[in-house]
């Protein structure tokens, strides 16, 4: 019984995609280790919902842009590669932005300019420059996906803490029982404000760096 369970698991663990995703979740996390794409990570984490939508949008853009850029990597002249990459990324971001406006209008209003700013998010251009230009399409796609997931993991973690402590809710549903408030518990106003984001990420990274060393 045990063998049938462990065998496919071990096979998955040996595969390249698993390794890429595991690495970018922890040791080579784009935000906390490579320090890329911080801007949006801070801005959209007041609520869990916006953070999840933003992670999905970014993952989609990184994965597809890496795939496309990798497909045409041999056709891009070296001197103008940045502008080509940016145009591909910008096109994908516009698609993501229009999709959000069409199907999730409220969230798109809350995310305001930050969906557009995926264009200048260093993760996307960084993966295009650093990986997609030198590797075939499928691994590039997986690499983009892995980095998107790594980025999302931090975003969702930070948003979880900020929404829980800042407004006592998760995904817009109150989770702190009202008895707590009656007993004198108060929401932490700092978490909702800008400085809260900086401090939570700082502490997050502290924890992660300490754990990795051990």
């Amino acid at each position: 019984m045990e063998q049938t369970w462990t065998k496919p698991l071990a096979a998955i663990k040996r595969s390249k995609s698993y390794k890429a995703i595991a690495a970018s979740l922890w040791e080579a996390n784009p935000i906390s280790k490579q320090i890329l794409g911080i801007c949006s990570a801070l801005a959209v984490t007041v609520q869990l919902k916006t953070a999840i939508v933003m992670s999905l949008a970014l993952t989609l853009v990184v994965a597809v842009s890496s795939f496309v850029i990798s497909c045409i990597r041999n056709l891009i002249p070296r001197n103008i590669r940045i502008i080509v990459e940016i145009s591909i990324i910008a096109t994908l971001v516009i698609i993501a932005d229009e999709l959000l406006k069409a199907f999730m209008y409220d969230v798109s209003k809350q995310l305001s300019v930050f969906v557009g700013l995926i264009i200048t998010n260093c993760i996307v251009l960084g993966r295009a420059e650093g990986y997609a230009l030198a590797n075939p399409p499928i691994p590039s796609f997986v690499d983009g996906l892995a980095n998107g997931i790594g980025y999302g993991s931090i975003l969702i973690g930070v948003a979880f803490i900020r929404e829980l402590l800042g407004s006592g809710k998760l995904l817009g549903i109150s989770v702190i029982p009202s008895a707590f408030y009656a007993a004198g518990y108060e929401n932490m106003g700092l978490m909702v404000l800008a400085p809260g984001a900086f401090i939570v990420i700082g502490l997050f990274v502290w924890l992660q760096h300490t754990l990795i060393r051990k």
Binding site: L193, P195, I199, G202, L203, V205, H209
Partner: peptide, 23 residues
């Protein structure tokens, strides 16, 4: 500075304190 906090971590916290000042 504590070892794990060096670099990125402390920079974020410093920036957070600066943001409080600017607010």
């Amino acid at each position: 500075i504590p070892e794990g906090l060096q670099g990125f971590g402390i920079n974020m916290i410093t920036t957070g304190l600066m943001a409080i000042g600017f607010m």
